[in-house]
Amino acid sequence: GEDTILVCSKCNFGANIEKLGEKENCPVCKSKLLKKRAIEVGHIFSLGDKYTLPLKATFKDKDGKEKLILMGCYGIGVGRLMATIVEVWHDSKGIIWPQKVAPFDVHLISIGSLKKLGKEAQRIEKELEGLGLEVLYDDRKVSPGEKLIDADLIGIPWRLVLSEKTLAKNKIEVKRREEERLKFFDLNKIQKLAKILLKEKND
């Protein structure tokens, strides 16, 4: 969930406000503390001997004395991380996945008759995947508008649209999720397109 934290801009000390209280100065360097909103994505717990005492879990120290093991644990919540990414990377249309953590690299959409487009769309899908890109292929029998709206909502970094109109020109429409500008690539230059997308992914 969201928390209010106190952060020192000088020494980078930080703590939850409920732990530190309404202090104005940093306990480390005495500089002024700033209130910030933060999203909790992980936990660290000091468990002490809560579990080792009833289990009688012990070890021998360097002097041969038997002592209880002191425990601690930590964890990062994958669900919380995803929620945090969506909280930061979105617009009014939906999610804008950063390419490094996106569930797919490319959202391939066919608009029009599957009899006319299916074979070419599947070729593009296989070629992109063969070059190392993960592809989400939308061949549902729904309206073009629904497919495009869903693409923005899901937020895969790159949207490729193959339609009867673009196929007739031997082209495919290419668009970054966060941009309005459309580009068109020759269908016989899919490898060149894949190299561009892979470079952006790996940079």
Results as ranks from 00 to 15, higher is better:
G1K: 04
I95F: 13
G155W: 13
L20T: 09
F13L: 04
S92M: 10
R159N: 10
N25H: 13
V106Y: 08
K169H: 10
V78Y: 05
G145N: 11
A57M: 06
K119T: 10
I154N: 07
L20N: 07
R80S: 08
V86G: 06
L153W: 12
V28F: 12
S163E: 07
K119W: 04
G64C: 08
H43V: 03
K171I: 00
I96E: 14
L131C: 07
I156A: 09
L136R: 14
L55Q: 13
L193Q: 11
L136M: 14
L193I: 01
A57V: 03
A151F: 05
A38T: 10
S110C: 05
S163V: 00
I17E: 15
V142Y: 07
I85M: 14
D91Y: 11
I44M: 14
G155I: 05
S110W: 05
L70T: 12
G118K: 02
D63T: 06
L133F: 07
G94S: 07
R123P: 00
K147Y: 12
E87Q: 11
E180D: 12
S163M: 08
L148R: 01
G94E: 09
D150C: 03
K115F: 10
I44C: 07
C11F: 09
G145A: 09
G112W: 12
L70G: 05
